[in-house]
């Protein structure tokens, strides 16, 4: 689907939802660049009801920002349907599909008996599962959501589980297949980043990252690379962090300095060139986005100080490790524009080959086709939350990596 048609669908979604948007180019004419988009209720409050950022070529970034804002709105509390909630005992969840999850030890020991869950369908195979809502909805575990938790009959204490809550795996698309592909790739990307952290900082020191030779980048990727160096004011390292799942995953990285934390962008796609493009443009986006941030304590690593190894993960200083990197040429592959449905099937097959099953939930499907989904793959890691300052530990998958390196 063309960007122009996608933009039309995005505007149709706003009309259905009774919202208006305010957008701006944060990169002020750069190419690639980043756009921001705030959504406001028609005739409503002056505060935005949702916010999103987009990256890439100017039009791609403008439309991407609109769609990310729509995603955040459709997966947020405004559309929460308490009647869809099913309650399950945390201990049972820890013994079921989530027995390989990093938060299983917390679930297993919880005193509550009724945890709010939503029903997910498997991507391939059979057997729906209940997934705890807190895993995908940080807003649900906050103090201000106590009324929502009462409404669902949830009696669990989330004061520790909140550390493992993030919206990763949520995505929106012009159709369900596109949303599913984005969500699956995002889950695989966060897992690959998490495993990279484990290898770099929690293993015995023999890890050698794969550093892409910048001289071998395709033209459009090289253009994004040059813009990333211009925006960050720093040499950029492009690393291949593809996990055993096998879907190409790239990370564009600059180290921490005395003035700012490390910066990174990551991308996952069956196309290595597109994965690199997403990584580099995300680095551009997060750097330009620093001027917009009102994140308060986020990224503050003080809470990790009691655990030096976790603090090292949070700081993410690869300076020493990059000196030992293996320099590799950018993977040259035939790039075919396979439709999202086919890519979803291939990615699901690659996950299954490693013993993992993805599960999906449709958060909202609008008449114009715009669809928001959440995907979870039990067993894959979300340890990358440590780089936000969250005190989390890897799950069994990360442990296995640490002990096998």
């Amino acid at each position: 689907m063309s960007l122009a048609e996608a933009a039309k669908r995005g505007l149709a979604a706003l009309a259905v939802l009774g919202l208006r948007k305010e957008s701006a180019d944060v990169g002020r004419g750069r190419d690639p660049t980043a756009w921001r988009c705030g959504l406001y209720a028609d005739g409503g409050d002056v505060s935005p009801v949702a916010f999103g950022m987009g990256k890439g070529r100017p039009e791609e970034a403008r439309v991407g920002a609109l769609f990310e804002a729509v995603e955040h709105y459709l997966t947020g509390p405004a559309w929460f349907d308490s009647t869809a909630v099913e309650l399950a005992g945390p201990a049972g969840l820890a013994a079921g599909p989530f027995h390989e999850d990093a938060c299983a030890p917390l679930l297993a020991g919880m005193p509550g008996r009724r945890m709010a869950c939503l029903r997910y369908r498997p991507l391939g195979g059979q057997g729906a599962v209940l997934v705890p809502l807190f895993l995908s909805a940080p807003w649900y575990v906050e103090a201000g959501a106590a009324r929502l938790r009462d409404l669902t009959g949830d009696d669990c204490d989330y004061s520790h589980l909140v550390r493992y809550s993030c919206n990763s795996g949520s995505a929106v698309g012009v159709a369900a297949s596109e949303a599913l592909l984005h969500a699956l790739n995002e889950v695989i990307e966060r897992d690959a980043l998490s495993l990279f952290l484990v290898r770099a900082f929690l293993s015995d020191g023999r890890f050698r990252p794969r550093l892409i030779d910048a001289g071998t980048l395709p033209y459009s990727t090289a253009q994004a690379y040059a813009t990333a160096e211009d925006v960050t004011g720093s040499p950029v390292q492009l690393l291949d962090i593809t996990s055993d799942v096998g879907v190409p995953t790239m990370m564009a990285y600059t180290p921490p300095t005395s003035r700012h934390p490390h910066r990174r962008g990551t991308g996952t796609s069956l196309s290595p060139a597109y994965a690199a493009w997403r990584a580099l443009t995300e680095l551009i986006q997060v750097t330009l986005g620093e001027s917009l941030s009102q994140s308060g304590p986020r990224g503050d690593l003080a809470g990790l100080a009691a655990h030096p190894a976790l603090h090292a993960c949070g700081r993410f200083d690869l300076t020493g490790l990059l000196g030992e990197a293996r320099v590799v040429a950018f993977p040259q592959t035939a790039e075919a524009g396979e439709p999202p449905e086919g890519q979803v099937r291939r990615v699901v097959t690659m996950l299954a080959a490693r013993g993992y099953t993805g599960y999906r939930r449709t958060a909202r499907a609008l008449a114009c086709g715009v669809t928001a989904v959440h995907v979870i793959v039990p067993g894959l890691e979300r340890f990358m939350l440590v780089t936000d300052g969250n005190l989390v530990i890897p799950g069994p998958r990360g442990h296995a990596i640490a002990s096998s390196e």
């Binding site: 030890p105 917390l106 020991g109 550390r163 929690l202 293993s203 020191g205 190894a309 530990i393 442990h399």
Partner: peptide, 20 residues
């Protein structure tokens, strides 16, 4: 883009760090 481990997490982390 308020931080202490539970006993179960402490044990898992200690087990992981013992591999280093």
């Amino acid at each position: 883009f308020d931080q202490h481990l539970t006993q179960a997490e402490h044990e898992r982390l200690a087990e992981l760090l013992s591999t280093m």
